[in-house]
């Protein structure tokens, strides 16, 4: 099963996602797929905050800033659950960490294929993604390409997902729910 969780910055999406995987993964191995690369003090602080929120919740962390499907090589049990956080970092890493920036099409295809393999290899996959679409600003072309890639990927992931939830001021709003039989509704 796959759940996509989307929200803006400071929306409470991470806390909700961690709760969500906690309920889904009872009694199973629970992985945290970390995609953020740290370049400065602020990044360290952000990661520190997330680690603190996760501490004691039994996550095994896998650092996977690019090529997300490779996380599977570090997961042995087929009934494992994983929380991937955050799609916005993964897309930025895939797009901008090579010598030549990846195009929207390349990045979209690569990530969609990677996620599709992850989904098959796991019992539950929860993905956190970011709403970067509503500030009405016009950025430079590479940023606009990044935003378009994010939009396309969110759309593809929402298609694959059994459940899509938007988090607004900490409140979950269900956008899609085909996960009948799990008995969990928001």
């Amino acid at each position: 099963m796959m759940t996509l969780i989307i929200g803006g910055s400071g929306s409470g999406k991470s806390a909700f996602a961690e709760n969500c995987i906690g309920l889904l993964a009872e009694g199973k191995k629970k992985y945290y797929l970390a995609t953020m690369q740290v370049f400065d003090k602020e990044g360290e602080k952000k990661i520190e905050r997330h680690r603190r929120l996760r501490s004691g919740k039994g996550f095994l962390t896998i650092e996977q800033p690019t090529a997300i499907e490779k996380a599977l090589t570090k997961i042995s049990e087929k009934d494992s659950c994983a929380l991937l956080e955050c799609m916005s970092n993964l897309v930025a890493n895939e797009m901008f960490s090579g010598e030549i920036p990846g195009t929207e099409a390349e990045v979209t295809e690569r990530i969609a294929a990677g996620i599709s393999r992850l989904k098959e290899g796991l019992e539950h996959l929860v993905i956190v993604s970011n709403n970067v679409f509503e500030d009405g600003r016009q950025y430079d072309e590479s940023t606009m390409e990044y935003i378009r890639a994010m939009g396309k990927i969110n759309e593809l992931l929402a298609g694959m997902a059994d459940r899509v939830v938007e988090v607004v001021v900490g409140i979950p709003i269900t956008v899609k729910d085909n996960s009948s039989g799990t008995g969990r509704k928001e």
Partner: peptide, 29 residues
């Protein structure tokens, strides 16, 4: 709602969005 965009380059703008978000979560609670 001010958090639904590209994370700003400017440190103050970033902090403003993050802290406003956290405050709104607490108020919503």
């Amino acid at each position: 709602e001010i958090g639904n965009g590209i994370v700003p380059v400017d440190v103050f703008e970033r902090e403003y969005r993050e802290r406003t978000g956290r405050i709104l979560i607490e108020l919503a609670e």
